[in-house]
């Protein structure tokens, strides 16, 4: 991977952290200053969705043309995606504590996010209980694709069918074409791009690390 990815990612996030904490934001009732969570909470979900989609993409490639390198990619994208998901839930709970009054509010979007994490935790359990490396890679790739498809209606369809207190749905202010004013867009879009780039970079470093570890093990075996 090119160097510019991490440099651009770091620059964007430096900008997002300064501007996100200091720049002007619209004054809205109840939300007040917590509206700044938009820059840190929402990009986590964009990042998670992006990383999980990459994981499924590599899982499909793996099934078409199996190789241990592809399997490592599937696993690492899922790993980093899960970290993004956990951070997304934690930032969301922090925000909900101040706006809704309790960290867990039984909101459809919260539940959907928790289930998305359950899917990938189950994926790791599945990997842990298969001994044969090739079988582990193949079966977990199948589960990855299947579970991701089952998750799509849960995250993108059902929350839109139910009323929710989450900003951006059910008439609540938030991420919406009319409500999100241009000052926030100037920070929000770079934040999304920056977090995705950082996610890509972390995944890439982890994949390279795993490849090196594998190479070392092979060298030691030859001795």
């Amino acid at each position: 991977m090119k160097n510019w990815v991490k440099i651009l990612g770091i620059c964007l996030l430096l900008y997002v952290h300064t501007a996100g904490l200091l720049a002007e934001v619209p004054r809205l009732n109840i939300l007040n200053e917590t509206i700044r969570a938009l820059y840190f909470h929402v990009p986590m979900w964009f990042g998670m969705t992006f990383l999980f989609t990459m994981s499924v993409y590599y899982a499909i490639l793996y099934l078409r043309n199996p190789s241990p390198e592809l399997d490592r990619k599937v696993l690492e994208y899922a790993n980093v995606g899960t970290v993004f998901g956990v951070l997304g839930i934690l930032t969301g709970m922090l925000w909900a504590n101040y706006t809704w009054g309790s960290p867990w509010h039984g909101d459809p979007k919260q539940n959907g996010a928790a289930i998305a994490l359950l899917v990938y935790l189950a994926y790791f359990v599945l990997r842990g209980s298969l001994d044969n490396q090739e079988q582990r890679a193949r079966l977990s790739a199948v589960y990855n694709i299947f579970a991701f498809a089952a998750m799509v209606p849960l995250i993108f369809v059902i929350p839109r069918m139910t009323s929710s207190m989450h900003p951006g749905s059910g008439g609540n202010p938030g991420f919406n074409v009319y409500e999100l004013d241009y000052r926030m867009r100037m920070v929000f879009y770079p934040a999304v791009a920056g977090w995705i780039l950082i996610g890509l970079w972390i995944t890439n470093v982890r994949i390279r690390l795993k490849n090196v570890e594998e190479a070392i093990i092979e060298l030691e075996d030859e001795k």
Partner: peptide, 23 residues
């Protein structure tokens, strides 16, 4: 079919299927 190949199939069956059938 997936769980049958693994070691602790019965637990795995429950763990793998619940998130999928929730929708």
């Amino acid at each position: 079919g997936i769980a049958a190949k693994a070691n602790n199939s019965h637990i795995l069956m429950a763990v793998l299927s619940f998130p999928v059938v929730i929708a």
